[in-house]
């Protein structure tokens, strides 16, 4: 499938400025196309405009210049707003600030209720969404008594109940402990696998971005890098210049290369990294000075 889910052309945006100061452009002529069914990670340091971009994808913000088309719909068309928001769900950073009810299933029902879905179908959608995120047994619980990861899963279910074609995650794991992060990432992969949804994941975690089809790096309101995770992470220097890290494994290979070892440029996870190192050592028969690090990588 190569339909275009999102088409952004020359998008500029600025927030209303305080009196007496000129508004600063947060997005500066950004152009981007996202394929339907693709999984795109968006990276960029704080303030680079990631959230501002995300909010254009479901018409929470409207372009000051340029255009945003979502599944062929212009986000500036007022009468399409609900249609657009229904297609493009959005999960925010803090689950506490997006859950609307003190009862799980009532929260998940909120979006279909707003859309005027008939009651029996709301029930169907709520049950399906809760099962999808593995929170069905908790449907009658109070969210504030659940863990952070569970709350975020409920927030995701609340978005899935709209049956969106595309889901934008704006740093969904930033407030979670490692376990909660894993739960949420598990759901994102499942969403891709089972629903074939278009996923846009804004994140600070390189390991999360490494699993995407495509990585976009933003810098001061523009796309600074764009490519497969392998292509983007191979550029350690450029990433560092943009204030970003690379996955630990890639950093290890990068440092080894700088020491003069002929290892590949990039590895996206521990297994690939260990494999690359093993192959290298087999080929050269060399006992490197970095053998301790190799064992560490192997041990993972």
């Amino acid at each position: 499938m190569s339909d275009i889910a999102i088409k952004i052309d020359g998008l500029t945006y600025f927030y209303p400025a305080d009196e007496g100061t000129a508004p600063v452009d947060v997005l500066r002529g950004l152009t981007l196309e996202l394929e339907s069914g693709s999984f795109t990670a968006v990276l960029g340091h704080n303030g680079s405009g990631k959230s501002t971009l995300a909010r254009h994808l479901n018409a929470l913000l409207l372009p000051k210049g340029g255009s945003v088309y979502v599944f062929g719909m212009d986000t500036r068309m007022e009468e399409l707003v609900l249609e657009i928001r229904r297609r493009v769900g959005m999960v925010f950073q803090n689950p506490d600030n997006q859950i609307v009810s003190n009862v799980v299933e009532e929260d998940v029902a909120f979006a279909p209720e707003n859309l005027g879905v008939p009651s029996p179908e709301i029930r169907e959608r709520v049950d399906e969404a809760l099962k999808m995120v593995g929170m069905y047994e908790f449907r009658n619980h109070a969210p504030h008594l659940l863990s952070g990861g569970q709350r975020q899963r409920i927030a995701i279910a609340g978005v899935l109940a709209m049956r969106p074609k595309c889901v934008v995650f704006d740093e969904p794991t930033a407030m979670l402990d490692p376990r909660g992060r894993e739960e949420v990432m598990g759901i994102i992969y499942k969403l891709r696998r089972e629903y074939g949804s278009t996923v846009i994941l804004i994140t600070h975690h390189m390991e999360e971005a490494a699993r995407a089809d495509r990585v976009i790096v933003m810098d001061s309101g523009l796309v600074a890098m764009d490519g497969s995770p392998r292509e983007v992470f191979s550029n350690v220097e450029e990433l560092s210049a943009l204030g970003l890290d690379v996955p630990e494994e890639t950093r290890l290979l990068y440092e080894l290369r700088r020491e003069g070892l002929n290892v590949p440029l990039c590895a996206l996870d521990a297994r690939e990294c260990a494999g690359a190192l093993a192959k290298y050592f087999k080929k050269t028969g060399d006992i490197p000075s970095g053998s301790r690090t190799e064992r560490n990588a192997d041990g993972k």
């Binding site: 929470l60 959005m90 925010f92 600030n97 997006q98 609307v100 707003n114």
Partner: peptide
């Protein structure tokens, strides 16, 4: 933030 999240979930 809650108001934004409600809008994102089609509240009107």
């Amino acid at each position: 933030e809650l108001a934004t999240a409600m809008e994102a979930r089609c509240y009107h």
